[in-house]
Amino acid sequence: MPWFVKIERGIVDKGTFDQHVPAHRAYVRSLIAAGHQARTGYWAERGGGMLLFQADSRKAAEEIVARDPLVQHQCVQYELHEWCIVEAPD
């Protein structure tokens, strides 16, 4: 399964953003349970973050991102990229 990365930048105030973080984290846990190998986090300097996950296709990845509560509540602007791994453990 290909890897995808959503690189995001917050576009709302911290209070509004923080309201949707619990739902975002629950969504990521549901992706992990469904086998998408999802990982999420934020940049140490604040203001943005990243979601790394596997999906069957670009279309499936776009659908996954569209269901993210941070996207649904217009808390972030994002870019979606397919990540082509060059080196990985055996």
Results as ranks from 00 to 15, higher is better:
52 L>Q: 01
52 L>T: 11
52 L>I: 15
52 L>E: 11
52 L>H: 09
52 L>M: 13
53 F>Y: 11
54 Q>G: 09
54 Q>S: 05
55 A>L: 09
55 A>F: 03
55 A>C: 03
55 A>I: 10
55 A>G: 09
56 D>A: 10
56 D>Q: 11
56 D>P: 01
56 D>T: 14
56 D>S: 02
56 D>I: 00
57 S>P: 00
57 S>T: 12
57 S>W: 04
58 R>M: 08
58 R>P: 01
58 R>D: 13
58 R>H: 09
58 R>I: 03
59 K>H: 11
60 A>I: 08
60 A>D: 08
61 A>E: 08
62 E>A: 11
62 E>W: 10
63 E>S: 05
64 I>D: 13
64 I>M: 04
64 I>C: 07
64 I>E: 02
65 V>N: 06
65 V>I: 13
65 V>S: 02
65 V>L: 11
65 V>W: 03
66 A>M: 08
66 A>V: 12
66 A>W: 01
67 R>C: 05
67 R>F: 02
67 R>V: 04
67 R>E: 14
68 D>H: 09
68 D>Q: 03
69 P>R: 04
69 P>K: 08
69 P>I: 01
69 P>C: 01
69 P>M: 00
70 L>Q: 07
70 L>K: 11
71 V>R: 01
71 V>P: 05
71 V>S: 08
71 V>T: 03
71 V>I: 13
72 Q>A: 14
72 Q>M: 12
72 Q>P: 05
73 H>A: 11
73 H>G: 06
73 H>Y: 00
73 H>E: 02
74 Q>W: 04
74 Q>C: 04
74 Q>G: 08
74 Q>P: 00
75 C>I: 01
75 C>S: 12
75 C>A: 09
75 C>D: 15
76 V>H: 03
76 V>S: 04
76 V>L: 13
76 V>E: 01
76 V>T: 01
76 V>F: 08
77 Q>G: 12
77 Q>M: 09
77 Q>K: 09
77 Q>E: 15
77 Q>D: 15
78 Y>F: 15
78 Y>C: 05
78 Y>V: 05
78 Y>I: 02
79 E>N: 12
79 E>V: 14
79 E>Q: 14
79 E>W: 07
80 L>H: 06
80 L>W: 03
80 L>P: 04
81 H>G: 11
81 H>P: 02
81 H>S: 10
81 H>N: 07
81 H>T: 06
81 H>I: 11
81 H>R: 12
82 E>F: 07
82 E>K: 09
82 E>W: 05
82 E>H: 07
82 E>V: 09
82 E>C: 08
83 W>A: 04
83 W>Y: 06
83 W>Q: 00
83 W>V: 05
83 W>H: 07
83 W>S: 01
83 W>P: 04
83 W>T: 03
84 C>N: 15
84 C>W: 11
84 C>H: 15
84 C>E: 11
84 C>K: 15
85 I>D: 08
85 I>C: 04
85 I>E: 04
85 I>A: 07
85 I>F: 06
85 I>P: 06
86 V>T: 13
86 V>P: 03
86 V>G: 14
87 E>S: 09
87 E>W: 02
87 E>N: 02
87 E>C: 00
87 E>H: 00
87 E>L: 09
88 A>T: 14
88 A>G: 03
88 A>W: 01
88 A>K: 13
89 P>I: 01
89 P>G: 12
89 P>F: 06
